[in-house]
C-alpha cells in the first residue's frame, strides 16, 4: 500500500484540530535533526535533551495559541528556537560556545552512535569511518558541511558568518561532499582488495 506523506504544515494543522497522532509524526520526522543540532552546540546528552524539550514546549505553545506562522517552514523555525536556547544555556553558564565555528573537529567528538535507529542506519564501524573522514576534511570544507548539514543554516547565512561569497560557500560544500564520497569509495576499494587479492 502506498504511504501518503503529509507535509509539516498539514500535520500542524491536524494537530491544532485535535489530532495528537499528527504531532507525533511531526516529532518523529524531525527529532534526530533537531537533537543533533543542539548536541553539536552543548556537547552533553542530558543538557541537549532538556533544551530539546524546552524548544518543543515553546513550539507547542505557539502552535496552540494560533500564533504559528503558516508561511514559515517548521524545521528552520524550531531549529532557530533550539539554537537560541542552546546559546542561552552558555550565557547562563557564562561560557561562550566554541561550537563548530572555531574548531570543527570538536563537534564530532560530541556525536555518539545511536542504536536502534532503524535498519537503514549504518553500523558502528561504518559510523566511525565516516566520522574519521569528516575529521580529515580541510577545515573550511568541514565548517560549511557542519553548518549546512547539521545546523541547517542556509548558504546565505553561512556566507555571512564565514565572510565569503555564497558561491565560495557552495563550492566548499560541493568539494566537502565529493571529498567525503571519494574517501569512502577508496576505502571500499581497499576492502575489496583485501577480500579478493589481485
Amino acid at each position: 500500500m502506498e504511504k501518503h506523506i503529509l507535509s509539516d504544515s498539514k500535520l500542524i494543522s491536524l494537530y491544532r484540530n485535535g489530532n495528537d497522532g499528527a504531532f507525533e509524526q511531526l516529532l518523529n520526522r524531525h527529532k534526530s535533526k533537531i537533537f543533533t543540532s543542539i548536541k553539536l552546540i552543548v556537547k552533553d546528552s542530558a543538557k541537549a535533551e532538556d533544551i530539546f524539550q524546552d524548544a518543543f514546549v515553546k513550539a507547542i505553545k505557539t502552535i496552540n495559541s494560533g500564533k504559528y506562522n503558516e508561511e514559515g517552514k517548521f524545521l528552520p523555525w524550531i531549529l532557530r528556537i533550539a539554537h537560541n536556547l542552546s546559546i542561552d544555556h552558555f550565557r547562563k553558564e557564562k561560557r561562550y560556545p566554541t561550537i563548530i565555528l572555531e574548531d570543527g573537529s570538536n563537534v564530532f567528538d560530541s556525536l555518539a552512535f545511536s542504536e536502534g535507529m532503524g535498519s537503514r542506519k549504518m553500523d558502528k564501524e561504518q559510523f566511525k569511518k565516516l566520522k574519521k573522514h569528516i575529521y580529515e576534511l580541510p577545515e573550511h570544507q568541514k565548517k560549511v558541511l557542519i553548518m549546512r548539514h547539521f545546523l541547517d543554516m542556509s548558504f546565505k547565512e553561512i556566507a555571512e558568518r564565514t565572510n565569503v561569497s555564497i558561491n565560495t560557500a557552495l563550492g566548499r560544500m560541493r568539494y566537502a561532499l565529493l571529498n567525503l564520497r571519494k574517501r569512502l569509495e577508496q576505502e571500499s576499494i581497499q576492502y575489496d582488495k583485501n577480500f579478493y587479492p589481485e
Binding site: 535533526k33 535507529m117 542506519k121 565516516l130 548539514h149
Partner: peptide, 10 residues
Amino acid sequence: EMEEVEEGPS
C-alpha cells in the same frame, strides 16, 4: 550517508 550520522533523543 551524512544523514546516518544524526543522533536521536532518548
